[in-house]
């Protein structure tokens, strides 16, 4: 698939996110929009999996540790065929397949139940450890938020991924520089990110998280690293693609309504 085609898909995924959260009347557009190119790279280019057989043992795994970006994940999962697109429009409604935050018992293709931040890297470590013990060739990917890494559990997991030499694990950090109450720098200042992850024994790569060639080459590089896990720090923009949402913390957890939906869709064209 060409870069142009990937870009086209990313555009459609962004429109899905706006329509889904718009219809639901709630949800998290900002952090969904910032992670689109990362998810599209994984599901349309990098990972091996079988939508017809979601439980296939050899599949690569993806854990959405920042579970509130569920709309982005759901759009991608439906577009690669895990479930029909109609489900997207029932997001967050009672009885729906698509819960507000990812639930593996509700949704085919969702690998872990997340939403309580800071837990996904440990889960991914477990999948990677199991892959090593039982001689499987799958790789494990996990997407973290830059506010999320303020959770102590993330750093416990960072240590064990290094300790257990999880080179079949690749974490990606959605570094959009915003959390809920402000910029990550204002709230807890987790910088310098590269030095921290490096000090924890990880191979670290930095990319522009909206540029497919950079993301894809980083994912390839990660696969070649031996003896340690890789962290890809993806520099992103929260709310990417929707002018009134870009870089604005107000759009972390609020759905666009009415005329704002139209404006967002127009921006994305």
């Amino acid at each position: 698939m060409s870069i142009e085609e990937l870009k086209e898909i990313a555009k459609e995924v962004r429109k899905d996110i706006i329509r889904m959260t718009g219809l639901a009347g709630s949800g998290h557009p900002g952090g969904s929009l910032s992670s689109v190119e990362i998810l599209v790279s994984l599901y349309f280019k990098k990972m091996k999996y079988d939508p017809g057989n979601p439980g296939w043992e050899e599949r690569d795994r993806f854990v959405l540790s920042k579970g509130h970006a569920a709309p982005a994940l759901y759009s991608v999962l439906s577009r690669v065929g895990f479930f029909p697109r109609d489900e997207l429009w029932k997001l967050r409604k009672r009885g729906a397949m698509l819960q507000g935050h990812p639930s593996r018992v509700h949704t085919p293709g969702v690998e872990a139940s997340t939403g309580s931040l800071g837990q996904g890297l440990s889960i991914a470590n477990g999948m990677a450890i199991s892959g090593k013990i039982y001689g499987k060739n799958y790789r494990v990917y996990v997407l973290l938020g830059d506010g999320e890494i303020e959770e102590g559990q993330v750093w416990e997991a960072a240590m064990s991924a290094h300790r257990f030499k999880l080179d079949n694990l690749c974490a990606i950090l959605d570094n959009n520089d915003l959390q809920i109450d402000g910029t990550v720098e204002e709230i807890m200042d987790p910088y310098p990110l590269r030095d921290k992850w490096h000090a924890f024994g990880w191979h670290v790569i930095e990319v522009n998280g909206h540029e497919f060639p950079e993301i894809l080459s980083a994912l390839d590089e990660a696969e070649k690293v031996k003896g340690k896990p890789t962290m890809i720090i993806a520099h992103t923009v929260k709310g990417k693609g929707v002018s009134y949402m870009e870089g604005r913390k107000e759009w972390h957890g609020k759905a666009p309504q009415g005329e704002l939906i139209e404006r967002a869709l127009k921006d994305l064209e």
Binding site: G25, S26, G27, Q99, G100, H101, S103, S113, T114, G115
Partner: peptide
């Protein structure tokens, strides 16, 4: 708490 679902 509503639409956020079980995790919240």
């Amino acid at each position: 708490t509503g639409p956020d679902g079980a995790s919240h």
